[in-house]
């Protein structure tokens, strides 16, 4: 059974289609990333999957149940990392994690979770006093304290410094290694590329492309750009589906190879062209 199966999901606000008929499948144990600009419908989609929002149409199965009707047994199996929570400001990190852990039948210990998210030094600090990035790590801790089978993360690394992001990525890989299915939304492309087994790009309420980070939007088959300089100083810039033959020729003709670069479109190039087309 798949972790998530969505067909024809729609969400209509008063005069706007926030989600306009999307299909999604997320396999068990997979890290799945939902990419897209602000307002594309990522958060709405994820909140419907989490059971936080009602859908206007379509069929949704999350861990085999309809999240719009699922009860507390289902919620035990699902972890949610909120995007913009500011709750429990007057509790300490440890108090809040112990408190929420108490709702689950087999929670991780507070100290274990605090260690996992790297907040050991802050465990006795009030949540109010934490930086934005530390606050988000508390949210992550609260999402995983119940040992979920499926974890939702909505833009989890907003406000993280680069080192904290790397640590966070390690944590996500570790959770996925233990068999947790992970669905994250992000607008950091490097994050999606570093973490995701599969990703989908949303724009204007639709999924405009789906694939692995390497194949998204036909990226692997896209032409490579080859640039070099000949001995007379003239710059060359050519596009080739398969540059192998060209490279052989350049090597044989004695071109200065330090001037040679071969690039394929980055995930960012692909992404920008995808959301550009959708607009």
């Amino acid at each position: 059974m798949e972790a998530i199966e969505v067909t024809g999901l729609r969400k209509t606000y008063k005069n706007r289609e926030a989600v306009d008929g999307i299909d999604l499948v997320v396999a068990r144990g997979e890290i799945f990333a939902l990419l897209g600009p602000n307002g594309a419908g990522k958060t709405t989609t994820v909140e419907i999957l989490e059971g936080h929002r009602r859908r206007s149409g379509g069929d949704v199965r999350v861990l085999g149940e309809d999240p719009g009707k699922a009860g507390s047994a289902w919620r035990t199996r699902v972890g949610i990392v909120l995007q913009d929570a500011a709750d429990a400001a007057d509790l300490t990190v440890r108090e809040m994690i112990r408190h929420v852990g108490g709702f689950y039948p087999e929670p991780r210990s507070a100290d274990e979770v605090i260690e996992l998210v790297g907040l050991t030094a802050k465990s006795k600090s009030k949540i109010r006093t934490l930086s934005g990035g530390q606050r988000r790590r508390v949210d992550v801790a609260l999402g995983i304290v119940g040992r979920p089978e499926l974890l939702f993360l909505d833009e989890p690394t907003t406000g993280f410094d680069p080192e904290a992001r790397r640590q966070f990525w390690e944590l996500i890989r570790k959770l996925a290694g233990d068999g947790t299915t992970i669905v994250l939304t992000t607008h950091y492309l490097d994050e999606a590329e570093a973490l995701a087994d599969r990703l989908a790009v949303m724009a204007d309420g639709r999924i405009v492309a789906e694939g692995t980070p390497a194949t998204l939007g036909g990226r692997s088959g896209a032409a490579a750009r080859v640039r070099w300089r000949t001995a007379d100083g003239v710059a060359h810039d050519e596009r080739h589906e398969d540059p192998t033959e060209l490279i052989h020729r350049l090597v044989n003709t004695g071109v200065d190879l330090t001037t040679l670069t071969i690039t394929r479109p980055t995930l960012e190039d692909t992404y920008l062209s995808l959301i550009g087309e959708a607009r």
Partner: peptide, 17 residues
Amino acid sequence: MDREDGTLKRLRGTPMP
């Protein structure tokens, strides 16, 4: 306040009744 700061949303996502 609980509705605004995310307290209720957080709790809703847990098995707490």
